[in-house]
Amino acid sequence: MKVTINGDAGELPDGTTVAQAVRTLTAMTSGVAVAVNDVVVSRGAWESTSLTENDRVEVLTAVQGG
């Protein structure tokens, strides 16, 4: 299925979870937050939330700013 992670479109196996999608970018779990289609997925739900075709996943962290 086609999924976009941080703006990059790619193919992931059907049933890929949010947790697996995050692990394509980082092994970190603290200091990271995820939104799927502009809705926050809390860390406790990463393993149990499966992505679906054309989902837009945003994986954010804190950077220098302000």
């Binding site: 980082t26 200091g31 962290t61 804190a62 950077v63």
Partner: peptide
């Protein structure tokens, strides 16, 4: 102290946090 939120970049080492 303030920080901003941005897309995670796997290439970046070290964190302001």
């Amino acid at each position: 102290t303030t920080v901003a939120m941005r897309r995670l970049d796997p290439a970046v080492q070290g964190s302001v946090l």
